[in-house]
Design a protein around this nucleic acid. Structure first.
Lengths: 116, 116, 116, 116
DNA sequence: GTGGTCTAGACCACC
DNA sequence: GTGGTCTAGACCACA
């Protein structure tokens, strides 16, 4: 896998796994790759994978069975969506609104397109 | 100058010159670099520059004085802003609206942020 | 094909193709010769044909199917007629009127011939 | 002088001399080049020039003084204008009207431009 | 195969 | 000097 420099690698792995879950590639309640497997697959250090999994566990997206592995939480899609939603509102939306005002795009114009 | 692969070179030059005009680096009614000069400066073939200049001329951003060179139109900033605006509405806005609906972001929520 | 020096080659090709369309030699919605074919047929460089085709595409006379070729637009005859009409009014008509005034040809005289 | 193939040479010489008279290069009542002089200047046979001069004489544009040469008639400009006028009405005008009807150019549209 | 882009270099008309 | 046109050939993405 290729990583971009604008974000940390462990964060990009979190985003990648979250996307796999949302699209159903990693189904709810299924086991995901072990830390060592994922590290080999991604070509990164196992410690980096561990950091990603730990964060996802704290966010309630995955959970751990001792001696077995990590599993996708039942509510994982909900948590992921909520997180994406919050990030979007915090980062992308303000930037876009700023751009709209700069280009003098009317609010009504936006409303028209939204309703369609 | 470095060019990205995601767009054609002649289009990136158009965007570059347009930005220089908007920021005032190339003032209205001033002469811009000749085709050959700009080609040398950018490290591309004069034909490529000619293509950029011809397109900008058709868009009313620059105009030509026979045997003298290309000049920035008085209304260039207006034309450029209008073009950026149209592109935003055509490309970025629909993508963003699609994302908002996917993430179930309410329209009122957007309105609140916009008014602020 | 022979080209006259009074106009550019690519423009003469545009005029030629437009005439073929008007007379029905190139029917509406039919595929026209590919860039390379037309270049060989006309004895000019493919780039020159490309320039002609691009201009006609911008004028709405032909359109492009990716990887297939260029096709005559349904409204091509309308666009071509409108263009011929505009060119006539812009170029030939003023010249003729100038000549009529020089030769002191009465307006009524013209009207008589027109009504017939 | 270069001659076009669409008309006879002697006729083109008539047109040329007529134009010189109208523009004042050959003033009224002045002597024009002798047949031999004009033949040498034009690079054609003297017989051809003679044919041109004879026709112009019949049209009243020039007249002959025995042993002296050809002179521009006092009324030459009037005759020339009248002839150009008749030719225009007979040849060019009908062709133009035909073209206008083909391109569906309204009569009122013409009137507007004429009045201006 | 198709169009589309780009380079390298040439010649021209105009000022 | 300026833009404008044209040639010859190359490489690319797409279908």
């Amino acid at each position: 896998m290729e990583f971009k420099k604008k974000s940390t690698i462990y964060q990009q792995i979190v985003d990648f796994v979250a996307e796999q879950i949302l699209t159903g590639v990693f189904p709810v309640e299924s086991k995901i790759a072990s830390v060592r497997e994922m590290a080999a697959k991604m070509g990164v250090n196992p410690n980096t994978i561990m950091r990603s999994y730990t964060q996802m566990q704290e966010e309630g997206i995955i959970y751990n069975k001792r001696g077995v592995g990590f599993f996708v939480s039942t509510d994982a899609p909900i948590f992921i969506k909520r997180k994406l939603r919050d990030d979007f509102i915090k980062d992308e939306l303000p930037e876009m609104i700023k751009k709209m005002k700069l280009l003098e795009i009317d609010f009504d114009e936006f409303e028209k397109m939204y309703e369609r």
